[in-house]
Amino acid sequence: MYDLEFLSPVSSGPLSTPDGGLSLEDASASTKVLVRAARNTAAGAHLKVTYGRSRHRRDGTLICGSRPGEWTLLADPGRGAELVASLPDEGFVSVVDITHGRAMFRLSGADSIGVLAKVCNIDLADDMTPDGAVFSGSVAKVTCDLVRDDRDAGRSYLISCERSFGGYLFAAMADACAEFGINVPAGLSVH
């Protein structure tokens, strides 16, 4: 499956405000690997982060503690086989490449908190969801996994959902961005 071409559910290119202060881009092609492991396994010890937190591994992989006893590994496209092979598999461990089953977007910029607050009921304040926080909740009525993964330029969120909701969710996010100055292309309207 690793030579399978990735088909994104999103047809739009990156959207941003003229000053670049707010941007929304499709990151669905990113490698996504789901790991479930009992706490006392080598895989659990290797991944290290607890539920609700994330860390960047030296090879660029973002390791997210997405549920109790469950992790999601996010990386550049095309790294599925490598990530699956990188995990110790002794004990009660399951590792599944879910790249083709999930859509993912990156929402960045100082106004990203304002955009997300319109469509998500999670407390986005720094003391509740600081950089590195991993959380799940409803975004525009779609159950999503979110990671706050700030970039040099500032606040940034990775938002992922089941692939079949991806087209709608990107359009809904773009719509939420409109009042902050993003020009929503024709054909991407949710109304």
């Binding site: 539920y51 549920r67 109790p68 959380f135 799940s136 909740g137 409803s138 159950t143």
Partner: peptide, 12 residues
């Protein structure tokens, strides 16, 4: 006494 399922959060 009732059971709840955290469907949008931890799925527990």
């Amino acid at each position: 006494t009732e059971t709840w399922y955290c469907r949008s959060g931890c799925r527990r």
